[in-house]
């Protein structure tokens, strides 16, 4: 699971109002290289929750992203490459996603998060 996917997932348990971002617990991280696409990244920057990405990337062992970023930084090739790596190339292969409000755990196996709910959570 890329951190771009993590940036869209939210805890979907009934009654939960604050289900984002899911906290990551890491068992295994893998890196897969992806072609660098600056236009795509600039477009994504406006859409994602940057703070959630920074925190997630640090938990995944990548500490290069600055705490805060603003659109002007998209002119920097250095920043874009770091942003690219964090967003597209780091994968949570094995681990857990934890609902920030209830502590409910969603397992991630072979890179696939299991967001299925029990009957009493729907």
């Amino acid at each position: 699971m890329r951190l771009l996917t993590h940036n869209m997932l939210s805890s979907n348990i009934k009654g939960v109002t604050n289900g984002f971002p899911l906290r990551i617990e890491v068992e295994k991280v893998v890196e897969k290289s992806v072609d660098f696409n600056p236009d795509f990244l600039k477009n994504m920057f406006a859409k994602i929750e940057y703070k959630a990405l920074v925190e997630a990337s640090r938990i995944m062992g990548y500490a290069e992203l600055p705490d805060h970023a603003e659109p002007s930084m998209l002119e920097s090739d250095d920043f874009l490459r770091k942003f690219h790596h964090a967003l597209m190339e780091l994968h949570l292969e094995e681990g857990t996603l934890v609902c920030p409000e209830t502590g409910r755990r969603f397992p991630v196996n072979k890179g696939v998060p299991n967001m299925l709910l029990h009957e009493d959570e729907v």
């Binding site: 699971m1 890329r2 771009l4 996917t5 940036n7 869209m8 997932l9 939210s10 805890s11 979907n12 009934k14 289900g19 984002f20 971002p21 897969k32 992806v34 994504m44 859409k47 994602i48 929750e49 072979k110 890179g111 696939v112 998060p113 299991n114 967001m115 299925l116 709910l117 729907v122």
Partner: peptide
């Protein structure tokens, strides 16, 4: 699906969930 994507050397992400109770953050898609 994952094997199919691997076979063609494509990067594709998967999430196991019930579409009916999917909750998605932001407007990324």
């Amino acid at each position: 699906a994952s094997e199919n994507a691997d076979e063609l050397e494509l990067d594709m992400e998967f999430v196991q969930c019930d579409i009916r109770n999917l909750r998605w953050e932001g407007q990324i898609i």
